[in-house]
Simulated scan of single mutants.
Amino acid sequence: MKNLSISLLVALVLLGSFWLWKHFYPTKPTVFAGRWTPEQAKAWYAKQPWLVGANFTPSTAINQLEMWQADSFDSVTIDRELGYAEGVGMNVMRVFLHNLLWENDAEGFKKRIDQFLRIADRHKIKIMFVLFDSCWNDEFALGKQPTPKPGIHNSGWVRAPGTKRLKDPSTWHGLESYTKGVISAFAHDPRVIAWDLYNEPTNSGYMDDVMPLLTKTFEWARVVRPSQPITVGSWNDHRRSNDLIRANSDIITFHDYQEASKLEEAIEDLQKTGRPIICTEYMARTRNSTFQTCLPVFKKYNVGAINWGLVKGKTNTVYAWDAPMPSGEEPKIWFHDIFRPDGSVYSSEEVAVIRQLTGNPSLLTESKTMKLANP
């Protein structure tokens, strides 16, 4: 019995060691054929202007579904608000899609995407589309979307595809069709600047659980071979996902809501990849991530800069992630966003910095569509 106990103990130690090795010392990530070389990526980036823009949802939409569904697609607001972006010299927007929209009505969805791209093109703005997202609400459906909860950041934003489908590969046929279909439809469209396959994949506690779908998403996208670069942004220190992302992204994208000095450190570390870099989320005023401090750093290193939020609206992103205001009163310091729906701005100082650094100092000085006004 004693020998059996010792043998069992040894077996458990070995099993535990294997588990630790598997989770903390993973094998090399799969690398899919078709990834651009660093030279190809640099050649593509050299043809682009310095990319400055925002994550865009029209102020009348609470989430991706409300933005894109046929009965709530608001081309008038989209046109007006992209005009605000053009007016401060922005030239790129990062925009979220959703798999349910494709699975429900692929042809209608493609038509609305094309309509959106026509509007953006009139404003000289390129679009980076995001296919999947691990953030915020896990329960959702097509149809009428909820109204915003007062003072709650992104109270109605939804994940794609959500936990149930993430963990059930038998449902991935629709996700594969969506990934291949939407990329194929615009794979050589000059209005689309890049494909961001998965927003913060390990968020919501997914961590290792997301790895199979994240891996498949890269595989599906590579089959299409779009003329635009493929990427996924790093946002935390989860080693397995970051290794996969770095091994398969044509260009390096990342999120950073830190103060300027730490942002600069992050950029210098990412430069070691030898590939072009775009920050696809930054600017959280109460965390000292601001246009005045961070945008000069991005320009110094020729790193693209896409802040979170353009116009205050139903997403409620003027409120901080961790500081709800149930009263719904406007916070004294906005967390994200630049404009109010009427075109007035949160801070004339911020807008002046954006205009100056994008090389458009004369914009807005005689504007008839926007008003400069501090809160």
Rank of each mutant, 00 (worst) to 15 (best):
V13A: 15
L14A: 15
S17K: 00
F18V: 15
F18S: 10
F24P: 00
G34H: 07
R35M: 12
P38K: 09
Y45Q: 15
W50Q: 11
T60V: 05
I62R: 03
N63R: 07
E66T: 04
V76K: 14
R80Y: 09
H98D: 07
W102D: 00
W102P: 00
N104C: 01
A106M: 08
D114G: 13
I119H: 09
I125D: 05
F129K: 03
L142F: 01
P148G: 04
S155A: 11
G156Y: 02
T171P: 00
S177G: 09
I183E: 07
F186A: 01
D189K: 04
R191W: 07
R191Q: 08
V192I: 12
D196I: 02
S204F: 06
S204P: 05
M207D: 13
V223Q: 14
E264M: 09
I267G: 02
I267R: 04
E268N: 14
L270S: 01
T280M: 06
M283G: 06
T286P: 03
T290Y: 02
T293E: 15
T293S: 14
T293Q: 15
V297E: 08
F298N: 09
K299D: 01
K300E: 11
A305I: 07
A305F: 03
T317I: 11
G328S: 11
W334K: 07
I338G: 02
V345T: 15
Y346R: 04
N360K: 15
L364D: 04
T365W: 00
T369Q: 14
K371D: 03
